[in-house]
Design a protein around this nucleic acid. Structure first.
Lengths: 368, 368
DNA sequence: ATGAAAGCGCTAACAA
DNA sequence: TTGTTAGCGCTTTCAT
């Protein structure tokens, strides 16, 4: 090791009072000149490395030293400076969350799961909303992995191809939520969409329905395709024909539920039940049915998908396939933190079960 | 000026190859060893202070130097490290956003306004959701002002008393959204709730209604009180009695719209119109009215407040008082950034106008 | 107009 | 088990 300048000289040269504005640091903008690890060290009578050890729960600290440091921390109201910590090579204790939009209960519930788990782990959340502008996804992702966050959560990403490779190459931790990923090696948390579609359809068939209308979601989403396949499989398994006229292509928004139902009801041989690929469209269906002068469930049965909070509040309460949305968020965080804490962690795919929730919007068909 | 150690010696002593793991820094976790200001400086043949000047758009940089640096930045794909910047006394370029929940269109629209403005200003957003647990508000606020963010946005805070003083004392920039604040010196962005309540009521009166039911929001919120006052003032101004039986106390959730309407319709002398303090309750009202076998608007007129996206999508489309929610968010960001950029900025209160949106849920009363 | 250097608060390697 | 120190990448002052 070569000889370096003696750092001690710095301290010795220090005038008692700082006469000039110190270089670099501007005088903190807001008043609050926060307590640092140094203040704590002084208070506890230890070196500041020891304080760091205590703060980071490292081993090799005598328990009474730890005690003393902890006390100093409390009495001084010390809070670590995340930026410094992160700059020094530690964690940033923040994860990025990339979503399309926030106005729906669907997103609300997922985000609730995410931020509850995250705050339990003392992590911060950086939010990025793309508003469906695909370019933004890539820009955000590039910023995010630039040291700002320790990991990334992507809900229903639309432009994966543009950055998944970068993410994988740099081994940056991430988890997709409600998206199948590009292949089996992508870490994802998804639900049993096919089974949900199957279960709802079978339920209607078992009630006696023979003509069941189906409203799809956006068909470029794998989940939408799976729900449709589940519906078709249930029909097939019960020997019912798959009449393409009964399938209406929607995009998960309420007005399409209304329009879809209208279109199905105008069919020469209309369905006796309508299965909408999400609750929001089911609400549109309910309106259209009522506006057509029909009653739910006596004239027409309606079933949804998601089980958002509103589903139990409409009249009649909506029978639907519950997705464990909040759990989806919690599970994603669990997986992400596992990868952050251990980059060697093998990649997992978590599949959570959907559940048929029977309420009052379905009944046996009229003429049975 | 006292003589300091010659920093140049550092460089001269540097062995050609680093033989040991450098202290402090762990080898970056993920592969990506990002380009720094130093790399750019070397590439452009300037000192790294100059690069900093260029990046921060400071004056005193010859334009061809600037040119050269910019080119180096592009060719190297350099992105500033926010943590380092913030640690060195600059901005963190992040603002904190504290909300109750995210599942509603109300919040969705406000947040959209916020994050569009923020991303236009190259700011990041740290999200904190309280889920209505008041203790969390204070904890979050304390963390947030600890250097993590440059400012704070609070939507409908519930526990202001616990930290507003801290915020003011440290002169930390913040803006309240849709909340009146503790006094006139609190920076807020609000809407004309009283006027909105007045306008909607006057509209119904002018249609010929004499008995108008009113569903309040949570009465501990000033906005709810104002809407109610506006309603009462309109009645008074038009010589109508303020029958307390016609006022039902709700809490802004849909089931209370349903229950409230049921209760009003059961009155010996039921109203011919119902004014709900938000759209979500108005949807509940619409259901209850229909379930009572009445038609909208021929039997009963219904009017809401907020003008969330769904309001135009239900049948019949809901007449309502529009709040410029997205603009609320944009305006709050504008005010916040102004204060961040100039702490001397006088405190402003912004009041945005509500607008009556006439759709098809109101008509003249039956017996007129 | 540019460069030199201090130091923001912290983590982790190394020494003791 | 604890202390010492380098250095993370940057902003800003001072000197030139």
């Amino acid at each position: 090791m070569q000889r370096r300048n003696n750092a001690m000289s710095k301290k010795l040269e220090q005038p008692t009072q700082t006469l000039k504005t110190p270089r670099g640091r501007r005088p903190n903008g807001n008043g609050l000149s926060s307590t640092t690890i140094m203040d704590v060290a002084r208070e506890a009578g230890v070196s500041y490395a020891t304080v760091s050890r205590v703060v980071n729960n490292k081993e090799y600290v005598k328990s009474d030293t730890r005690e003393r440091v902890l006390k100093a921390i409390t009495s001084l109201g010390y809070v670590v400076n995340q930026q410094a910590r992160s700059l020094a090579g530690g964690r940033s204790y923040a994860v990025g969350l990339l979503v399309r939009d926030l106005g729906s209960s669907y997103m609300g519930e997922i985000v609730r799961g995410i931020d509850e788990s995250l705050s339990a782990a003392q992590y911060n959340l950086m939010l990025y909303t793309t508003h469906r502008r695909k370019i933004k996804e890539r820009i955000y992702v590039n910023n995010l992995i630039q040291g700002m966050t320790d990991g990334l959560l992507l809900v229903l990403p639309e432009n994966l191809e543009a950055y998944l490779e970068t993410l994988d190459q740099t081994n940056f931790p991430y988890v997709l939520i409600d998206h199948q990923g590009l292949d089996e090696r992508t870490p994802v948390v998804i639900t049993t969409n096919w089974q949900g579609g199957y279960d709802a359809t079978r339920y209607l068939i078992e009630l006696g329905h023979r003509r069941i209308g189906f409203l799809t979601g956006m068909m470029d989403m794998r989940s939408s395709q799976d729900r449709l396949s589940g519906y078709q499989a249930a029909l097939r398994d019960h020997g019912l024909p798959a009449d393409p006229q009964l399938v209406y292509e929607g995009t998960y928004y309420q007005p399409e539920g209304y329009a879809g139902a209208q279109s199905l009801l105008r069919l020469p041989e209309p369905p006796t039940a309508i299965f909408a690929s999400n609750d929001v469209m089911a609400f549109g269906v309910m309106e259209a049915v009522r506006d057509a002068g029909l009653r739910i469930p006596s004239d027409i049965s309606v079933i949804g998908f998601d089980d958002i909070a509103q589903a139990s509040q409409v009249a009649p309460p909506l029978t639907t396939v519950a997705q464990p949305l909040e759990q989806l968020g919690r599970e994603a965080v669990r997986m992400l933190l596992a990868r952050i804490n251990n980059p060697e962690q093998p990649i997992a795919r978590t599949i959570l079960p959907t559940t048929l929730i029977i309420r009052q919007s379905c009944d046996v068909p009229r003429n049975v």
